[in-house]
Structures are given as C-alpha cells and as structure tokens.
Design a protein around this nucleic acid. Sequence first.
RNA 1: GCUGUUGUAGCUCAGGGGUAGAGCACUUCCUUGGUAAGGAAGAGGUCGAGGGUUCAAUUCCCUUCAACAGCUCCA
Length: 644
Amino acid sequence: MNVKITLPDGSVKEFQEGVKGIEIAQSISEGLARNALAIEVNGEIWDLSRPIAKDSSIKIFTWNDKGGKYAFWHSSAHLLAEALEILYPGVKFGIGPPIENGFYYDVDLGGKTFGDDDLAAVEKKMIELARLNNAFVRSDVPKKDAIDYFKKKGDEYKLELIEGLQDGSITFYQQGNFVDLCRGPHIPTTGPIKAVKLLNVAGAYWRGDEKNKMLTRIYGITFPKQKELEEYMYIVEEAKKRDHRKLGKELELFAFSEKVGMGLPLWLPKGTIVRERLEQFMRKAQVKAGYDPVVTPHIGSKQLYVTSGHYEKYGKDSFQPIHTPDENEEFLLKPMNCPHHCEIYKVKPRSYKDLPIRYAEFGTVYRYEQSGELHGLTRVRGFTQDDAHIFCRPDQVKAEFIAVIDLVLHVFKSLGFGNYTAQVSLRDPENKQKYIGGDELWDKAEREIQEAADERGLKTVAVKGEAAFYGPKLDFMVRDALGRSWQLGTIQVDYQLPQRFELEYVGADNQRHIPVMIHRAPFGSLERFVAVLIEHCAGNFPLWLAPEQFAVLPISEKFNAYAKSVVAKLKEIDIRGFLDDRDEKIGRKIRDAEIKKVPFMLIVGEKEVAENKVSVRKHGEGDKGSLDLMDFVNQFKADFSLPV
RNA sequence: GCUGUUGUAGCUCAGGGGUAGAGCACUUCCUUGGUAAGGAAGAGGUCGAGGGUUCAAUUCCCUUCAACAGCUCCA
C-alpha cells in the first residue's frame, strides 16, 4: 500500500505506507534531511521517526520554522531533565515545555537550594549528554503501566498529570537513561543541540496555582550553533539597554524613593515634560472627538465604592480607608475614576438628546498592587489614567465604541506603535462569580465589542477570563524591550455601573432608561505608556516630546553671549533647550549632548557669529551644516509641535 | 504575597573580621579649544536598616526594608 504525501508546494509524492518524516526529507534533498527537526502532518507536529499510515499533507520543519524550534527546545528541556536527574538524584519533575525563547523545566529538588551558581554545572552536563547523540524514542504506554512507572519512581507530579490523561493517549519519550511522560514531538537525537545556556532560576507554583507548592523553574535556551547563541545573548544585552528603568535614570525622567514608598513614581522635570506633552496631545485629540474635561478629587467616601462594587471586590486587599475625626466617616483613595464620573452624570436629569456625554479626566488613582508586581513605571501603586467615560444610549454603543477605537489607533499611529495586538478580554464562563451582572447583558456587551472591532478590521485575539469584573474589554497590548507584553489602551462596555448608580435618562418615549457606559483609556496610564514609549524609541523621543529639543554649544567662552541670544530666541517660540557654557572643548560638549540624546546640537563659534547662523548637528546623524536660525526652525517646525 | 538573587560615593562597580577603593559625575585652577572624553588638584561614604556573635563587624549569623528575575495577581 502506498500513501500520497502532499508537500507544501502542492506537489504530491507517493511513498510506501509507514513512511517516516526523515525519509520524506531525504527524498527531497540531503540538506533538508540534515537540517530537519520535525514534521507537520495534517496540522499536527510529529517526530521525524513516526510512521505515516495514511494520505497526508506535510511540512518538514527545520530550525528556521517555529515548529522546528519548539521541537528543538522541547527536546532541550528533556536534556535538562536528564542532566538534573544525574546531578540531583531523586529530583522530581513537573512540566518542561518550550516557550517563545527557549524552554524551562519545573522541578522539585526536595528542599535543596539551587542558585545561579549551579547553572554552569548543569549546562556542562547537558552538553556532555548532547554529544552522546542519543535518540529520542517514542513509545505508547497503557495508563496503568505509566502510573506504575512513576509510582515506582516516586514522582507525584507526573502521576497527577497522568491522572488527567485518557488511557491510550499516553506516550513516553526516552533518551539515554531518562524517561519522561510527554506528548512530543522531539527532534531525532540530542546531537544537534550544540549550544546550551541556562538563563535563570525562579520559583513557580505547581500548575500555576498560588495554593500549590512552589517548584524551582529553570529557564534555558539552546541553539544548533554556538554562534547563534552568542547572537541571541547580544540581542538580549541590547534590549536591556532600552529598559525604561535604566533610561529613566540616565535621562533623569523619573525616580523612586524608599521614603516616599514603593511603586510611587516621582516625575523629574524632564520626565514631566514628556508626560505633559502627551497630555496636551490627548487633550487636543479629545476636544476634537467631543469630550468634556472634568476634574474630581483623589478620594471618595467609602459609600461611593460600596455602590460601585469596588469595595466588596478589592476593599480588603487595597489601601485601607482614611479616617477623619468623625468616627463614622471613611474615605478611600480612589482606585478608579468611574464612580466620580457617574456622580457627575447624576448632577441633573438627562434627556436622550443629551447623549452621548463624554467626561474625560487625567485621573490619578491608587491601587495597592502586590509588592512583587511592581515594575518600573509599568506597574505602580499610584498612576494617572487618561480616563474617560462615555454615557450613551444602547443604540449609540457601537458608533461610540468605534470612535474610541479610532482614537486609540490615532494615538498608536502618532507614536509609531506598529506592532500591538488587540485582545478581546472576555469573562471566564467557568468562574462567573468573579463578575457582577447577568448573562444577558454580558453576552450583549461581549458581542458588541467583537462587532465593533471587526467593523474596524482589527485582528483580535479573544481571551477568556481577562475581563474586568463589571464588563468585557478590548485591550491593546504592546511588548516591552524584553518581550514582556503590557496592556496599554483599553475600551470597556459596561451595563453594570449605570444600574448600580441608578443613572437614567428620559427617552423619546418620556420613560426613564438606563444609559450604557463606555470606559476608555487610550494610553492606559501615563506611567505605563511613557515606560513603553521609552523602550520603543530607546530614549530617542520624537522631537515634539523630547524634554530638551536643542542644546546650544559655544566653541569657547567668547561666543557665550551670542549662544545666549540663540537660546532666548528659541525659547521665545516655545522650543525647549539649554545652553552648555561649561569650560569644555566642543568635542566634549557634543559627546555629552549625544549621550543625553538631545535631538539638535547648535554649535556656535567665530564663523556662526560672523554670519549670524548656527551650525546644526543632529543626534545620531552628525553635522548638517550651518543655517540661519529661523531657517532651522522653519525646516523642523512641524516636528517641534504636537502631531495632528 | 511566594521562590531565588542583590544592596559599598550622585552613577557603574571592585574589595573584604582590624572602621574603605576605581572610573565617570561634582568643585576649584590651568587651558579658549571647530563636530563623541584637554590637564591638574580637591571634595564626597554610619558599606540599606535593626539586632546578634567577636577584643574588634562594612565583612560572619538572624530579622527587616528595598531592588531585580520568575510565579501568582492586575478595578
């Protein structure tokens, strides 16, 4: 019997039944066979040594394919486990999957500590084992035998995993003396794993549950060539240079103080300029989009949050109430702005003709985040949202939602964020008690969000369990320099709070109706947005945001007076900058301005004074020749001001 | 919050049971220099905080605070 194998280019080849991936690769070319790591068979990734019994479409995976890398790293995880079992007899294993960059294995070392120093020894053992070029051998195992094996071995984690599996679907993989419960696939042998780097050790809860035991998670990455490992480590180092915490310190944008308290950022003068420019940009965009700015206090009575439901949900895990001399009085630091905005809505009766009403506020909120969560400016305990709440009629929801999507996309476009992902954050249907409100309204809100996103042609990923407790969200996620994903913009449809706050409007039918509320924050928070922006542009802000747009550098003291007049003229037309009149050589002044990432250096000496010009040098680009000051300004005028 | 690592000058870091060191930054002086570091001198530290061991602790031990990595969480 022959089987028909369809290749990715659409061509069909016939092989004998039971043909293996590696044989197909060999039939195509020697080179492919040499580089092949795994095979995709009808959408499933298989080992190259697994026989193919029926007509199939296949694709051979090499290192250049994601599937190939995953098989490679998955196999590397097993190699790590094999090394650990030799070096730490009695070690128990949790799970060891491939991840985006490398792999990890969760292990229970039975109370032994394992630090960064121990990584090198394990690495060495892994390389030693890889050189043995042992095959990864797959075998089908009846559930009973699988249980017996791990019972005998005494690995309760694997036993727990097996219990959740169907009999008949259990496979083992073995390389050398190491046997693991595993679905596969794996690369043919350990040989191709040439370069090994164990990156770090961290704790991780068994099965991701805080109530379970914490295992030791060892992260690593491997490559088929030493050179590729070196390149990877170089890229990681480069990414670290973009870290907003590092740049924030170097460029004097923000700081933290132990005395003020953890997670409470202090905005330094330069950071404040960036932040305020972003605010100006957003204010302008919001005026255009029909928002009304409002201002509300930083605290609110406890009753406000009992009404909103926040107190019940977060009260005990939050900053605790503020007390006053009046025994019965309690205030909370505001964790969000919506309740205040609801009360603004309520100051007078509303007609259907008034809607939509859009209240916008740069509202500073305080949330008691777990100490281990705090991270630079991306996760803080006091931050300012570019918040707004739209109160509208049910028939206006979609149009309003779409208008907000457009605003978010305008922001991303203006700041050059090209690679964001749009995530529809839905409720976890298994865990409904986490949320307030009935099924009908939730379903409606979830549907409306998806429809609005589709209408704007957004590619979305739906994720269950990520909704806010009062409603589903459309979240815009952007990655930081180290590949960690952060939520920036967010848009949420909410049918719950208007009910809780008894918001109303009088309809055309002269009846009372409940409005729908849309929460939205295109930046998310100024703190997180600035953090991601810093990493995005590596501290080289667009000209309109740069804290210092120019530096005037006189060649010597003799030209300080002229330099001062240049600074004064630019400041007069709201261009920001400073004079470097230190007693240093021009080379030094240029170097320092370059390090500070000042976009323009205006160098003035004898020649410039005589011709009434400035010599323009652009950050990272070098000398641009000399120009009349006003010609310089006009040339870059559009870049100095807020984007439209 | 949990596990692990770290904490020495403004910054980046070295050191180590006998009360500290480098480079950069800073101050002063010399130098007036044309597109990424001119020279010299000086000043600067309860070695994160609290306790313990010791004749003696910044160094060893404990506790605590903070930062970092990951987990968990995220209105």
